[in-house]
C-alpha cells in the first residue's frame, strides 16, 4: 500500500473524512434515514479508498472491463450526478406540490369565511 505522499491526496482525504463525519452527525440528528446514511457512507468511503489507494480504482476497472481506474471514477461520478439531479428534481416537485396544497387550503378557508360572513350579513 502506498503511503500518502501527494498534498492533493491529503487535502482530498481531509475533505472526505469531513463529509463522512457530517453524514454520521446527520444520522445522529435523525435527518438522514439508515438507507440514506448507508448510501452516502458508501459513496464517500469508496472515494476515500480511491484517493488513498489509487490502484483500487484500477482493480475495479479491470474487474468491470474498463481500461483505467480514472475512467471508472468518471463513469461512476456521471451516473451518480445524474441520479442526484433526478432525486433533487423529484424533491423540488414534491415541495412545490406541498406549497400548492397550502395555497389551496388558504384559498378555500378564506372562501368559507367569506361565505359565512355574507350569510350573516344577509340575515341582518
Amino acid at each position: 500500500m502506498n503511503i500518502l505522499i501527494l498534498p492533493i491526496q491529503v487535502f482530498l482525504s481531509i475533505v472526505l473524512l469531513f463529509a463522512i463525519s457530517r453524514v454520521y452527525l446527520r444520522l445522529k440528528d435523525k435527518v438522514l434515514s439508515i438507507g440514506e446514511f448507508l448510501f452516502w457512507i458508501s459513496v464517500f468511503s469508496f472515494a476515500l479508498v480511491g484517493v488513498i489507494e489509487p490502484q483500487f480504482t484500477t482493480y475495479i476497472a479491470q474487474m468491470v472491463g474498463i481500461g483505467r481506474g480514472t475512467d471508472v471514477v468518471i463513469y461512476i461520478s456521471i451516473v451518480l450526478l445524474f441520479y442526484l439531479v433526478f432525486r433533487t428534481n423529484v424533491l423540488i416537485e414534491n415541495t412545490r406540490h406541498d406549497i400548492t396544497k397550502l395555497v389551496r387550503k388558504i384559498s378555500l378557508s378564506n372562501l368559507d369565511k367569506k361565505s359565512s360572513r355574507d350569510k350573516k350579513s344577509s340575515k341582518k
Partner: peptide, 25 residues
C-alpha cells in the same frame, strides 16, 4: 359567482384541483 383566490400563482393543474376540492367538500 364565488371566487377562490390563490395567494400566489400555482398553475392550471393547481387551480383545477382547487375547484375539484371545493366541489368535493
Amino acid at each position: 359567482v364565488r371566487v377562490a383566490n390563490h395567494p400566489i400563482n400555482r398553475g392550471l393543474g393547481a387551480a383545477i384541483n382547487t375547484g375539484l376540492s371545493f366541489a368535493k367538500k
